[in-house]
Design a protein around this nucleic acid. Structure first.
Lengths: 340, 340
DNA sequence: AAATTTTAATTAAACGGTTTAGCCCCTCTC
DNA sequence: GAGAGGGGCTAAACCGTTTAATTAAAATTT
């Protein structure tokens, strides 16, 4: 590599000042167009690379936006990220991604790094157990934050997520309307707002239908295919013999269906299964999965939009913005009479 | 937010120079331990945040490492990324992730952004059709680059990937040894080194067994579940009636199995299917997928290691490092005599 | 033709750290 | 008691940009 090319290199070779070069490259009207063209041409010829660190040191705008979620390999977050990415792309922002795997330390360390890098803002899906002061860390240091997918009580930051309670009640009602009376709930946790809301939605739907809520029908567990797969054994050995399962999400549902199939039963006929999220994969699962659309793309898009708006100063109202879920009926659910 | 705390704030409140503060925070032996402790305590008390941009402007070391692959939502890359992440984590590096979706422009723009941010290095899985000068862009500007998963002819950068030709021949041999004689190859493209190598591995195995290579048995296509799912129709209508399929990867294989099941056939009994990669998901698919372990975690770990080594100056030899794949036999393949 | 405005370019001071030569002072050695 | 050596700290240059203030020259107005 030759000598590093900087503004002053261009300035010297052209016999002008660095100020003019800086202004020209940023298309300032303060410099004559002929000069600007000469400068741009020279910059290209020399292979000049803009030094953002130097610039942002002066301007205190880095063009960096951080995103931290539980696990980017989880397609649920993947779909959110994709939407954020495409929204941010057209606005000259670089984004830095990280998993926190629900570790409060990892999450804090990410926010600290982002602050050190001078991040312009952050989008986060808070880790389980995040203390209030960690939530405030970003904003206390002048970096706006937006929450996605999960909300935190006692924090009034702008939040975008699905209406979990309503969504799960849609799925539960669907099963009830097919005649199912013993419905298990598989996967998930009580430790997130999402978890509590989803369980509540299930309970509400049962109560509204005049059915009893049997706590033994709830099988919490990892929110992954593996989790669903492993829950199948427990599920199939329940003394109450459930005929249907409301799953935490599509991954759990697909895993559970695999587990059910492994035991020789046919999901959708012998056991009805609902998912949640409507991942791209849901439609091509076997059988195609009945699930609840949860608007991941919408959540990502709105969150990114809100952050960008905040960066240019327009003040979106804070608070929780709920996306209304919708039912997607496919082949993994059916009338109870279909049973062998 | 209160006033921004900087080195000089700490220095003033303590009545010492910024030089001392800077040295102390970086644990330099040049400053007395009692002073160091006072400084660190004060820094914490004031909520000081280190400004990496300012520092890296002087040191020209940003602590940023870029990673760009085809699609981070693809679990194959996801597993590589996870390994890179955990290797980089323990070395105080932040990493910036991006998809290029095989767009040369998107890839170049990522590398340029990384250069502007002063990235210390980059790990990339080059986009299809990347021109040589783009491959050199990073290194020409003093940013070391490592290739993963795909190699580029005519470029002697350090590369880590699986031995695709060998790996596919393992899968093909496995099917041949089970008695299959009409074996299709599903998914993939000719436009990457990986693609050519995999097809070659398939061809080699057939030839070695004295079998004919029928080009009609090759069904190229997207390397996704969706791709495999859609290929099923074509596959099942082939006039040669294949009894087995070698798939490009696990995603294609799982999609294909779903498609086969949708048509009323039983994968593993009626049709044998092999995957490639041995994703975590392969083991819980129904039926459990016979596949080829491709060492994603190993690839990611070694690539990250190599980059870190390069950053501290130790000179790993350039060139291609191949990971040896291994067979993982499960239930999606079986003897041809099992057929109905 | 002088006064005023406009246009085009320059100067110099930030931005917040790092680094190194050198200073001061104290202790040790002979 | 002079010189050597070393510990602890600081002054000041430097990294590459941006930008407010300023100047110089050209164009316009009166």
């Amino acid at each position: 590599m030759a000598q590093k090319i900087k503004l002053s290199t261009i300035a010297e070779t052209l016999g002008i000042s660095t100020a003019t070069v800086s202004l020209a490259l940023r298309d300032s009207p303060l410099v004559a167009t002929t000069t600007r063209d000469r400068i741009k041409e020279q910059a290209r010829a020399l292979g000049y690379i803009y030094n953002r660190r130097a610039a942002s040191l002066r301007t205190s705008r880095s063009g960096i936006i951080g995103v931290v979620v539980h696990d980017i390999m989880n397609p649920f977050y993947g779909e959110i990220l994709k939407a954020i990415e495409s929204e941010l792309d057209r606005s000259q922002h670089t984004f830095i991604l990280s998993n926190h795997y629900d570790s409060v330390e990892k999450q804090r360390s990410f926010v600290e790094t982002l602050l050190q890098l001078g991040g312009d803002g952050v989008i986060m899906s808070p880790a389980i157990g995040t203390p209030i002061e960690d939530m405030k860390l970003a904003e206390d240091n002048g970096m706006p934050a937006i929450l996605v997918a999960r909300s935190m009580e006692g924090v009034d930051m702008p939040t975008y997520r699905g209406d979990d309670s309503y969504g799960i009640s849609l799925a539960t009602n669907h099963l009830i309307s097919l005649g199912h009376r013993t419905i298990a709930m598989i996967g998930g946790t009580d430790q997130t707002s999402t978890g509590r809301d989803r369980y509540q939605g299930y309970v509400n739907a049962l109560r509204k239908a005049g059915m009893e809520v049997d706590p033994d029908l709830r099988i919490p567990g990892p929110r992954s295919k593996q989790g669903g797969f492993e829950a199948a054994v427990h599920f199939l050995s329940l003394p109450q013999k459930p005929t249907a399962a409301v799953c935490w999400n599509d991954l759990v549902a697909i895993g559970l269906m695999n587990g059910i199939a492994r035991a020789g039963l046919v999901p959708g006929r012998d056991i009805s299964v609902t998912g949640y999220d409507d991942l791209e994969e849901a439609a091509i699962a076997t059988p195609a999965l009945t699930t609840v659309w949860n608007g991941q793309a919408e959540v990502g898009r709105l969150a990114a939009r809100a952050l960008l708006d905040k960066l240019i100063g327009s003040h979106e109202p804070d608070g929780i913005h709920l996306i209304k879920p919708e039912m997607r009926i496919r082949q993994s659910t059916g009338p109870i009479s279909n049973r062998l």
